[in-house]
Amino acid sequence: MELWYTEKQTENFGITAKIRETLVTEKTDFQDLAMIDTVEWGRMLVLDGMVMTTVKDEFVYHEMVAHPALNTHPNPKHVLVVGGGDGGVIREVLKHPQVEKAVLVEIDGKVIEYSKKFLPEIAGELDNPRVEVIVNDGYMHIHDHKNTYDVIMVDSTEPVGPAVNLFTQGFYKGIFDALKEDGIFVAQTDNPWFKADLIQTVNRDVKEIFPIVRVYCANIPTYPSGLWTFTMGCKKYDPLQVDETKIEEIDTKYYTPRLHKAAFALPKFVEDLTK
């Protein structure tokens, strides 16, 4: 007998993967959590029926959350990651030696616990001495830490359940206040095939707060449609003005200095969403 996991990404479309083993299922205080081992993608974290990360393709998402912003800011010493309890973004942030402290604020401690147990290649840096892990509400942490961070990264689920507040203009205004005078923020903003309205709304809201707003894309096979967007808001520095010849090569599998600006070259239908 074969076992298959299916994520219903819309009412009419989904993806499916053959399962070797279900490692854990639990209804936490915030969401339904599952860790499964798939034949094609390896171990997979699923929250509320949505694929969050897999061992095989996780590097794309985590690298593209972290490196464009950190290579745009000239001196990112203090970095905040909201969400991201699997630890992948933290792992990438720590590849930048100028980062003195990286703070992870994850609302669901079970995500951290099971990621450490089943996804050690992703969560392996969560115990690094440069990292502070806080199990709390990221929305409230932002509110309580004004003028604190050089870069803030929002590694959230889709805008359902505990992540709903992380897609509001009030949250983006709080991020602006929590950043220093030359700070940068970046958030994952879903896909343009099924969530065009979300991308338009986020882009409009962020533009009302940040003077420089850029959208970029990456290919993530296990995310809905495979084409994923990220939105960056900057107080001072423009990612398109970065001299790519001065970006230091680091250990990556997707992001490169040449890709830094190329990722901001959007397909026309995506570009139209940002106008």
Results as ranks from 00 to 15, higher is better:
Met1Asn: 09
Leu3Ile: 15
Leu3Glu: 15
Lys8Val: 00
Lys8His: 06
Gln9Phe: 05
Thr10Val: 03
Glu11Val: 01
Glu11Ala: 13
Ile15Asn: 15
Ile15Trp: 06
Ala17Thr: 05
Glu21Trp: 07
Leu23Gly: 09
Ala34Asn: 00
Ala34Met: 13
Ala34Tyr: 06
Ile36Ala: 00
Asp37Gly: 02
Thr38Pro: 10
Thr38Leu: 05
Val39Arg: 10
Val39Lys: 13
Met44His: 04
Leu45Glu: 06
Lys56Val: 01
Asp57Asn: 15
Phe59Thr: 09
Val60Ile: 14
His62Phe: 14
Val65Asn: 12
Ala66Trp: 07
Pro68Arg: 03
Leu70Met: 10
Pro76Trp: 05
His78Asn: 07
Val89Phe: 07
Ile90Gly: 00
Ile90Gln: 01
Glu92Lys: 11
Glu92Pro: 13
Lys95Glu: 02
His96Gln: 01
Pro97Phe: 01
Val99Lys: 04
Val105Lys: 10
Glu106Ser: 03
Glu106His: 08
Ile107Pro: 06
Asp108Ile: 09
Gly109Met: 14
Tyr114Trp: 10
Ser115His: 12
Lys117Gln: 15
Phe118Thr: 00
Phe118Gln: 03
Leu119Asn: 06
Pro120Phe: 02
Glu121Tyr: 00
Glu121Ser: 13
Ala123Glu: 08
Glu125Lys: 13
Asp127Thr: 14
Asp127Lys: 14
Val133Tyr: 11
Asn136Arg: 11
Tyr139Asn: 02
His141Cys: 01
Ile142Leu: 15
Ile142His: 12
His143Trp: 06
His145Tyr: 04
His145Met: 00
Thr148Trp: 02
Asp155Met: 07
Glu158Trp: 04
Glu158His: 07
Val160His: 10
Ala163Thr: 02
Val164Tyr: 04
Val164Asp: 01
Asn165Ile: 05
Phe167Lys: 03
Phe171Asp: 05
Gly174Thr: 09
Asp177Ala: 13
Ala178Phe: 07
Gly183Val: 06
Val186Leu: 06
Ala187Leu: 10
Asp190Lys: 10
Asn191His: 09
Trp193Ser: 10
Ala196Tyr: 10
Asp197Ile: 00
Gln200Glu: 14
Asn203Phe: 15
Asn203Pro: 00
Arg204Trp: 00
Val206Ile: 15
Pro211Thr: 12
Ile212Arg: 13
Ile212Pro: 12
Val213Ile: 06
Tyr216Ala: 04
Ala218Asn: 08
Ala218Thr: 12
Tyr223Gln: 07
Ser225Asp: 11
Gly226Pro: 04
Gly233Cys: 08
Gly233Asp: 07
Tyr237Pro: 00
Thr245Asp: 15
Lys246Val: 05
Ile247Glu: 13
Ile250Thr: 14
Thr252Glu: 12
Lys253Glu: 11
Tyr254Ala: 01
Pro257Glu: 03
Leu259Val: 08
His260Cys: 05
Ala265Glu: 09
Leu266Asn: 07
Pro267Ser: 00
Phe269Ala: 01
Glu271His: 14
Leu273Arg: 11
